[in-house]
Design a protein around this nucleic acid. Structure first.
Length: 462
RNA sequence: GGCGACGUGGCCGAGUGGCUAGGCAAGGGUCUGCAAAACCCUCUACCCGGGUUCGAUUCCCGGCGUCGCCUCCA
């Protein structure tokens, strides 16, 4: 299997540290506000990579952190006049709900930054002890120029960086490029005791501390958004490798940004689409498919057309599966399965894999029309759809039963769709098409599509 | 200014040194009381200019364009 490693800027053969197991760390969200579409993308894209590795048989340890102490959380709390804890709690709930709707699997471990302050303090102490970091007025900074490898990930030359133009006046850095490991407490901010006085951790240190705690040194995959390459991931490498003298992460994966109107979606610019809103207006699985249609490393422009497109193609997939009832016993068609794997093995080319899936659908439909048995293709289909977690709808329309009940009452049927369809059939055979059509229309109005087939009427949700 | 990515048919979007990716839309058809849904068929593209090659959308060089990072960011 080949994976694109940002560190090398090329495809590398994947060889895990421990045979049969994969250790993976993903930079999760800073819980400061509601998630936008970009957050959904990183979550889904790395979820699929994780699922694929598991599907291949690897025992995957998947760590995704929660940043619950950070400048923007404090800013959000001040702005709204509430406690930082309330900001964190609400935002975390929103993220969790979005992940659930998108069918993102729970991480193996979900460490919270504030629960690992001791680990961070230890790490900072080690860095100071090795002269990679220094204390200044209660702050602790990492001395970038003490780490010769600095800039390797982002291909940046220290002298070319434009940092320093925005150094805050209260900072006491020796070099403008130095970054904070520990920030001295300010009034009204959450703080913890430390050997350097009360304060709170800088942003980058948490990932170094938590990744090491749960995955050790030299773990397999570190993933995150493309915008994290510099400075976040660059700084993580510097901290970890300076402190422990070992390789931090072997492979770095970065997902492309979600764009809106051709420009990056980011809260700071207001150029965002609210994720939970989209998920409430559209089938979440279609949003998942939207993310998956584009290779994870490329930018993805969000448009209504693109989402409608994804929704329509998802309907095609589901419609195919509806043509064959129940699970199949047959072994998956080997050729199709191999084509799918070949695509996925080349840097997780999910879009290419979806092409294989649609080939299976077309081929399957054709052979079904000819009255052939297509168990082997259905098995492939189920395998792939299950692996990608596209196999079922994921919304929570709870009041659908009530709506069906209302319709049933009007037509004197039992309160379920099948009874209504029986009713419609009676009406049609007695020539009362008006009554029959009315049932059909009313069901359509609540999102239930009636299909008349050679074997009678069937229904499904739109 | 430095670093980097990308430019594929109406739209979206994989991939490849020579052999129709795929999806959506559109057009045609099958089915049907009507309709819908569903299914089938059709639609042969790779920014521009050089170069390498028997042959380039695919490799190399240059240009143009779009975007990202260099400040918080998935």
């Amino acid at each position: 299997m080949q994976i694109y490693n940002t560190l090398e800027r090329e495809l590398v053969e994947f060889v895990p540290r421990d045979q049969g197991a994969v250790s993976m760390y993903v930079c999760g969200a800073t819980v400061q506000a509601r998630p936008h579409l970009g957050h959904g993308r990183y979550a889904v894209v790395f979820d699929v990579i994780r699922r694929y590795l598991s599907w291949l048989g690897y025992d995957v340890t998947y760590v995704r952190n929660v940043t619950d102490v950070e400048d923007r959380i404090i800013a959000a709390a001040n702005e709204r006049g509430i406690d930082t804890q309330d900001v964190v709690e609400q935002s975390y709930k929103d993220f969790a709900e979005a992940y659930r709707l998108l069918r993102v699997e729970e991480p193996t471990v979900e460490p919270w930054a504030t629960e690992h302050i001791d680990d961070m303090i230890d790490l900072i102490g080690t860095l100071i002890g090795k002269d990679y970091a220094y204390v200044a007025n209660g702050d602790v900074y990492f001395a970038v120029r003490s780490f010769p490898e600095y800039g390797r990930l982002s291909r940046q030359n220290l002298d070319d960086l434009r940092a320093g133009e925005r150094v805050e006046p209260e900072e006491h850095k020796r070099d403008p490029l130095d970054f904070a490991l520990w920030k001295a407490a300010k009034p009204g901010e959450p703080s913890w005791e430390s050997p350097w006085g009360p304060g709170r951790p800088g942003w980058h240190i948490e990932c170094s501390a938590m990744a090491r705690r749960y995955l050790g040194d030299d773990f397999d995959i570190h993933a995150g958004g493309h915008d994290l390459i510099f400075p976040h991931h660059e700084n993580e490498i510097a901290q970890s490798e300076a402190a422990f003298g070992t390789v931090f992460a072997r492979i770095w994966l970065h997902n492309g940004m979600m764009n809106l109107g051709g420009e990056k979606m980011a809260k700071s610019t207001g150029n965002v689409v609210d994720l939970l809103e989209v998920l409430s207006l559209h089938e979440p699985t279609a949003v998942r498919l939207l993310y998956l249609r584009t290779h994870y490393r490329k930018p993805l422009d969000f448009t209504q057309e693109a989402l409608d497109d994804a929704e329509a193609s998802l309907q095609r997939l589901w419609a195919f599966r509806r043509r064959v009832e129940g699970p199949v016993e047959d072994p998956p068609d080997a050729e199709a399965m191999a084509r799918f794997r070949a695509a996925m093995d080349e840097d997780f080319d999910v879009a290419g894999g979806l092409g294989v899936l649609f080939d299976v659908v077309r081929d399957g439909n054709r052979r079904l029309d000819d009255g052939e048995d297509i168990g082997g293709l259905i098995a492939v289909f189920d395998e792939i759809m299950g692996m990608l977690a596209l196999d079922e709808r994921s919304d929570g329309v709870a009041d659908l039963a009530d709506l069906i009940g209302e319709i049933a009452e009007r037509h004197g049927a039992a309160a379920n769709v099948d009874a209504l369809l029986d009713r419609r059939e009676q009406a049609r055979t007695s020539g009362d098409f008006e009554a029959g059509d009315s049932i059909r229309d009313e069901l359509a109005a609540i999102g239930i599509v009636v299909e008349d087939t050679a074997d009678g009427a069937r229904w499904h949700r739109r």
